[in-house]
Amino acid sequence: MIKVMDLHKYFGELEVLKGVNASVEKGEVVCVIGPSGSGKSTFLRCLNLLEEPTKGEVYLDGVSILEHKKDIDKLRQKTGMVFQQFNLFPNMTVIENIMLAPRKALKMSEPDARKRAAELLARVGLTEKADQYPSRLSGGQKQRVAIARALAMDPEIMLFDEPTSALDPEMVGEVLEVMKQLAREGMTMVVVTHEMGFAREVSNRVFYMDEGIIYEEGTPEQIFQNPTKTRTREFLSKVL
């Protein structure tokens, strides 16, 4: 579903990604872990061209997204993204946040979009918040709305950029629960996270990123119980 070949990204002189190769199959849940500054978020953001790779190839459903930059809006509709800072639209109510993209990008009618948004809100357990503004919500609720908003475009794959890092500890659980539910329903997911418990329990594969590449990858058992490389072992001994 996603194939990444020899991905490089420079910010000025600084080379953040130094040749990343990866693939994600349909229905897979991949967690990306690693120390700060290892390029995890940059890698994720290259998958929907929020960052433009300096060199390399990214294929989505076999289509090179770098060769089809003109169609990037269409391609991005296949990839939902959830941000660390939620990025809800503060001037719109919760339900308007969810309805906006289907209305504007898919030209869905207002009653259809509203119906769909209500279903998604029910799915993340926030039906009663539909007409509130985001400023009235807790962090965990905001992130669940953000997930619903991304799902409204019916994406084939969901990208999560440290979705629980900005949350108070007591709110992490409710967001992870929604994500687990999504995984059980078979959504393809790439999750950059510091939640090792989630990575171990939910993911099919784990990418350990370090020094701008995918340093080690494997099943959660392989990575968490028998990491083969020293740096992976060192990182895990610090966070577990």
Binding site: N48, L50, D73, K74, R76, Q77, T79, G80, M81, F83, Q85, N87, L88, F89, L100, A101, K104, A105, R149, A150, M153
Partner: peptide, 22 residues
């Protein structure tokens, strides 16, 4: 906030749609 543009674009809205609506 920069994140507003990124959120709009990540949903598949064009630059001008994001500008006008968000």
């Amino acid at each position: 906030d920069r994140g507003q543009m990124e959120a709009g674009r990540s949903l598949g809205l064009s630059y001008s749609q994001t500008m006008v609506s968000i």
